[in-house]
Amino acid sequence: MMEINLLVTLNAQYLLPLKTALLSLADNNSDITCHVWLLHQSITKNELTQLSRFVNHLGWTFSAIKVDQVFGTQAIDTIHNYPQEMYFRLLAGDLLPQSVTRVIYLDPDTLIINDLTKLWQLDLGTAMMAAAAHAGLIDAVTPLNNLRLNTATKYFNTGLLLMDLGQTRKIIKAVDIQQAIDRYRGQLLLPDQDVLNFLYGSHILEVPEEIWNYDTRKFMTYQLRSRGDHDLQWVMANTVVLHFAGRPKPWEQNSDGRFTTLYLQYRR
């Protein structure tokens, strides 16, 4: 049985979506066991106990680490009121035990519908992590973000990351992230994602988005880009991670996306 280290960083608002994602992972990966690592700031003891019981019920292990503030409050609060927890994934190498050398980070608004082990076993070469880029139909996103952030790489999405923590411990520094936030806060649209791409884009190995970080809003884009090959049957057979990025989320009342019904089956 293969053991995978799975990292999540969130607040209490996303505990139920997290359970839904974990259930989908367990349902479609019966030959693995996971150690779920949670980095958080304010989740209560009772909420952690309930989550631990849920993870244990899946046959997995669970560890929660409460993180003290790692940045100045002003630098975080002035950027669109995003929670500080979203930065914890970038600092996982410093926040997790040194014995943890590789993790898969997952956003809680995901479903895992096929085999995750190929990602876990991926050879990163000299890269410190792997991620997907949401390119769109003609990849207009990349040049716009290259101009906005003065970068030369694809614009990688942080919803799924395979991380070599030995490498991240050498390369990613909290002080560099803090300085980037202070210097570019007026230009940051998705703060942690922008910072990742601005500082570390050249250290990232690209993986196919239609397999590992499928944006559920863009079904028609994927189908057109593949000249019709990536239809719903293809997605269900090949895609591993469905990412319900943006709004509405599939658990919200006004959600009527193509994959909402599948999501609600797991949530229920």
Rank of each mutant, 00 (worst) to 15 (best):
V195G: 03
P143Q: 09
M163D: 02
H35S: 05
M129T: 03
L242H: 10
L38W: 02
L137R: 13
A12E: 14
T142K: 04
S42E: 09
D192S: 11
L90M: 09
N238W: 07
I171W: 08
L116K: 09
L23S: 10
V55H: 10
Q41A: 10
F259S: 07
S42C: 01
V8G: 01
N29A: 02
V70C: 09
F88W: 15
L162D: 02
L51F: 08
L262R: 15
I76M: 05
T33F: 04
R89S: 05
H57R: 12
L124H: 06
G228H: 13
W60A: 12
P108H: 05
K173L: 08
E209K: 09
F198H: 15
K170Q: 15
Q84H: 06
D27P: 00
T151E: 04
L160V: 15
A92C: 03
T33V: 15
K154N: 13
I211S: 04
G59Q: 09
K218E: 15
S202G: 06
K45Y: 10
I104A: 03
M236V: 00
H230S: 08
M236A: 05
L22K: 02
L264K: 15
I32Y: 08
I104C: 07
V240Y: 11
T78E: 13
L232C: 02
R169W: 02
T153N: 14
Q178A: 11
S24E: 01
Q84N: 08
